[in-house]
Design a binder for these strands. Sequence first.
DNA 1: CAAGTCAACAGGAAAG
DNA 2: CTTTCCTGTTGACTTG
Length: 297
Amino acid sequence: MAARSFLYGGGGGDVLITNKRPDPFRSSAAFQGSRSMLSFEDRGNNGSGGQFWQSFDHEDNGDDEYDEYFHQPEKKRRLTSDQVRFLENSFESDNKLEPDRKVQLAKELGLQPRQVAIWFQNRRARWKNKQLEKDYDDLQESYNKLKANYENLVKEKEKLKSEVDELSDRIILQEKGTSDSSSTKSTSQPQTHKQHIHILEEDVPEDNGNFTEKITELENGVQTSLVERVDSSYVFEQEQSDGSLDEENNLCRMFLPSVDCYTLPKIENGDHRDPQSVNSYYLGLPGDDQAFGFWSY
DNA sequence: CAAGTCAACAGGAAAG
DNA sequence: CTTTCCTGTTGACTTG
């Protein structure tokens, strides 16, 4: 970028010297923009080692110019790339600015300490905005993953539901068959099938309407547990057990919602997980405040 | 020339 | 009370 010539002398040297704390001038429009009476002429050539600036030389500006500058509206000077680089390095090492460091930086850069303080304030604000953007992107990504996961599970649920329907139809048909033939045939069903029927008919009397109701209830239970699994997989993806075991437990819960499927003796690997802890992974959807719990600020 | 960037400011809150 | 920080705003300046 081309070097920009000196823009505005403002209050001149007197102000530069006495203006340790610029607040008294804040309300005075005449002094706005006169914080650092610096010349940035040749700003591109003075960045190595020494100071980046030249003091405003009041001697070179007559009273006419002084008055002229004094009444000019505010004009802002950009910091040189060297100054910015220096400040950036300093910011990287520590984004807080202790008074000693502020003065030291101001000396080295040829700026007013207040300019350094303001730069740090603005820099922190920019950093925070960037961080917010990043957090938003991360959250969006998590949400998309969660959504895809949920949709898969809905499909899985639909599949399981159709299986349940099919099985219940079959059972109803078998019910009819056995009641028709029971008067003529005295042979019993195999033991395992009998147990299966018993499980499905548990607490269900002869009434088929109640039986359908029970099936619907079981399906709702499956749906609830699937939604819980969606939530838990959001954060604990790695913790998911092998699919066969989950499937087994799903079927168990589908048919035996009141039974602790995780502690049933059929599990042979000795994995006796606490069902409450298994289902306590809920963290909520992104809209929920809980979802921000893992966010680090 | 509109939109974006950035130094600087205003005002309130918090810390000492 | 002073100082610093935060947040929002202003206006000069840059960029496409």
